[in-house]
């Protein structure tokens, strides 16, 4: 399985994403891909990491969405390739219109950096099949602008289509409906503010993120009829 981890000027969780993919996905070949690249042919999973991009001037992710590589992400997403945007990656995906809504400044104005308890609201996705529905998992957050917003009509749609994948048990940022992560209608693009790539190693005393990556591996294998 080939994995691309995008790198923008200011990305700072890219190596964490590389290590997480290598450690959790059996046989994964992981490349870091610079934002000026204009093709992502051949990749099975594209990860857009956390950190910052282009200084996050104007709005988080606003400028990054026009990077050449984002055209390639849009194309790959339309073809069904798995796309996982974490933190700044989630912000970029909403700015690019690949996911609904927007991420605003935390209501408390503080940068929140601590562990967070998440409900797995939808365990029936390519990213979450390894979890039980309603299971509570511990995945750390680290953001100043993670306050998810969408109009009421969009929220109703998200609920009706089961697109809310993770919710906070204790809302840290003012997100509507406690939303921590949403998936697109086709089910191949997931954006989330918490960092699963920081929760894949017993040395760090948190392995709750592992099953997110193994779920993707399982979905990819099923899609390609690889047994084992």
């Amino acid at each position: 399985m080939k994995v691309a981890v995008l790198v923008f000027p200011g990305s700072n969780c890219d190596w964490d994403c590389v290590h997480a993919a290598e450690q959790t996905i059996e046989g994964a070949v992981v490349d870091r891909v610079w934002h000026t690249t204009d093709t992502l042919e051949g990749y099975d999973l594209i990860m857009i990491p956390g950190g910052f991009s282009y200084g996050d001037y104007l709005r988080s992710g606003a400028i990054a969405r026009f990077a050449p590589v984002m055209q390639a992400v849009a194309k790959a997403a339309a073809e069904g390739v798995y796309v996982l945007g974490i933190c700044n990656g989630f912000q970029i995906l909403t700015e690019a219109g690949l996911l609904p809504g927007a991420l605003r400044r935390n209501t408390g104005l503080k940068f929140r950096c601590h562990s967070s308890q998440l409900h797995v609201a939808n365990a029936d996705t390519a990213f979450t099949s390894g979890y039980a529905a309603g299971e509570v998992i511990d995945i750390p957050i680290a953001h100043g602008e993670g306050n998810y917003y969408c109009e009421d009509a969009v929220l109703e749609q998200l609920k009706a289509r089961n697109q809310i994948v993770f919710t906070y048990t204790d809302n840290p940022n003012g997100s509507v409906a406690d939303i921590a992560g949403v998936i697109n209608e086709q089910g191949n693009v997931l954006g989330m503010m918490p960092h699963p790539e920081r929760a894949v190693n017993s040395l760090l005393r948190n392995e709750d993120g592992i099953r997110l990556f193994t779920s993707i591996m399982k979905a990819w294998r099923e899609r390609h009829a690889i047994v084992g």
Binding site: L58, A62, I63, E95, A102, R104, Y149
Partner: peptide
């Protein structure tokens, strides 16, 4: 396209 985000 860029200067404002119509969602918010």
């Amino acid at each position: 396209k860029l200067l404002a985000n119509p969602v918010v």
